Amino acid sequence: MILAGRAHKFSDDVNTDYIISGKYKFKTLDMKELAKHVMEDLDPDFYRKVAPGDFIVAGANFGCGSSREQAPLAIKHANVAAVLAKSFARIFYRNAINTGLPVLECDTDGIEPGDELTVDPAAGVITNRTKGTVIPAKPLPPVMIKILNDGGLAAHFRKYGGFNFD
């Protein structure tokens, strides 16, 4: 799985209420509707600017706050290919993988808004095509890559009847 798109950059401590405001989470479970409001408290034009395959790039502690799965699901339904951050809140990280959203830990200081990126989650390599630089990332284990390729944990379980480590 090789991903390619543009960077949309955010700061440290982006909590799940910034990702998708609680005022929407409790009104609907329609992910296409929620996706229209992803990141709007930090960037009101985000949904209009993001193109399929783009990346959210952030600092440390991305996804802190509540443990609701709507946050990574809404990001995924906004056609974001992956989230790249210095670190993630633990529950957000697991929810992201479980819902089929790739998340990679890396140094995001060298990535600017609009930079064109190529990301290889299995190898842990991010290429900034705009700057001609390579940024190492923590590679995802093969079982997580398999879960992501299957569309998330529920789809993986349906496909294999449980975890498949082969």
Results as ranks from 00 to 15, higher is better:
residue 89 A to C: 05
residue 90 R to P: 01
residue 90 R to L: 01
residue 90 R to Q: 01
residue 90 R to M: 02
residue 91 I to S: 06
residue 91 I to H: 12
residue 91 I to K: 11
residue 93 Y to C: 04
residue 93 Y to Q: 09
residue 93 Y to D: 05
residue 93 Y to E: 04
residue 93 Y to F: 15
residue 94 R to W: 13
residue 94 R to N: 07
residue 94 R to E: 09
residue 94 R to M: 08
residue 94 R to K: 14
residue 94 R to Q: 00
residue 95 N to D: 01
residue 95 N to Y: 11
residue 95 N to K: 08
residue 96 A to S: 15
residue 96 A to F: 11
residue 96 A to E: 05
residue 96 A to C: 08
residue 97 I to F: 08
residue 97 I to M: 06
residue 97 I to G: 03
residue 97 I to L: 02
residue 98 N to T: 14
residue 98 N to V: 10
residue 98 N to W: 02
residue 98 N to C: 08
residue 99 T to D: 14
residue 100 G to I: 14
residue 100 G to H: 13
residue 101 L to F: 14
residue 101 L to T: 13
residue 101 L to Y: 14
residue 101 L to Q: 12
residue 101 L to A: 13
residue 101 L to W: 05
residue 102 P to N: 15
residue 103 V to W: 08
residue 104 L to E: 07
residue 104 L to H: 07
residue 104 L to Y: 04
residue 104 L to N: 07
residue 105 E to V: 07
residue 105 E to F: 03
residue 105 E to A: 10
residue 105 E to H: 00
residue 105 E to K: 06
residue 105 E to D: 09
residue 106 C to L: 04
residue 106 C to N: 03
residue 106 C to K: 01
residue 106 C to F: 02
residue 106 C to R: 01
residue 106 C to Y: 03
residue 107 D to V: 12
residue 107 D to M: 07
residue 107 D to Q: 00
residue 107 D to L: 12
residue 108 T to Q: 01
residue 108 T to H: 00
residue 109 D to Y: 05
residue 109 D to A: 11
residue 109 D to C: 04
residue 109 D to E: 06
residue 109 D to N: 09
residue 110 G to C: 10
residue 110 G to Y: 15
residue 110 G to L: 08
residue 111 I to Y: 03
residue 111 I to M: 10
residue 111 I to S: 05
residue 111 I to Q: 06
residue 111 I to R: 07
residue 112 E to N: 15
residue 112 E to Y: 14
residue 112 E to Q: 14
residue 112 E to R: 15
residue 112 E to L: 12
residue 113 P to V: 04
residue 113 P to H: 02
residue 113 P to W: 01
residue 114 G to M: 05
residue 114 G to N: 08
residue 114 G to Y: 03
residue 115 D to H: 15
residue 115 D to C: 12
residue 115 D to R: 10
residue 115 D to L: 03
residue 115 D to Y: 13
residue 116 E to T: 14
residue 116 E to S: 06
residue 117 L to C: 06
residue 117 L to Q: 08
residue 117 L to G: 02
residue 117 L to D: 05
residue 117 L to M: 05
residue 117 L to A: 08
residue 118 T to Q: 14
residue 118 T to D: 02
residue 118 T to M: 11
residue 118 T to R: 15
residue 118 T to C: 04
residue 118 T to V: 13
residue 119 V to H: 05
residue 119 V to P: 05
residue 119 V to E: 00
residue 119 V to T: 14
residue 120 D to F: 04
residue 120 D to K: 03
residue 121 P to Q: 07
residue 121 P to R: 02
residue 121 P to I: 04
residue 121 P to K: 01
residue 121 P to V: 05
residue 121 P to H: 07
residue 122 A to Q: 10
residue 122 A to W: 13
residue 122 A to I: 13
residue 122 A to N: 01
residue 122 A to D: 13
residue 122 A to G: 15
residue 122 A to M: 07
residue 123 A to D: 06
residue 123 A to P: 10
residue 123 A to T: 12
residue 124 G to D: 06
residue 124 G to H: 06
residue 124 G to Y: 03
residue 124 G to S: 09
residue 124 G to L: 05
residue 125 V to R: 15
residue 125 V to H: 03
residue 125 V to G: 00
residue 125 V to M: 08
residue 125 V to L: 11
residue 126 I to Y: 02
residue 127 T to W: 09
residue 127 T to A: 09
residue 127 T to P: 07
residue 128 N to S: 12
residue 128 N to C: 12
residue 128 N to H: 08
residue 128 N to E: 00
residue 128 N to R: 15
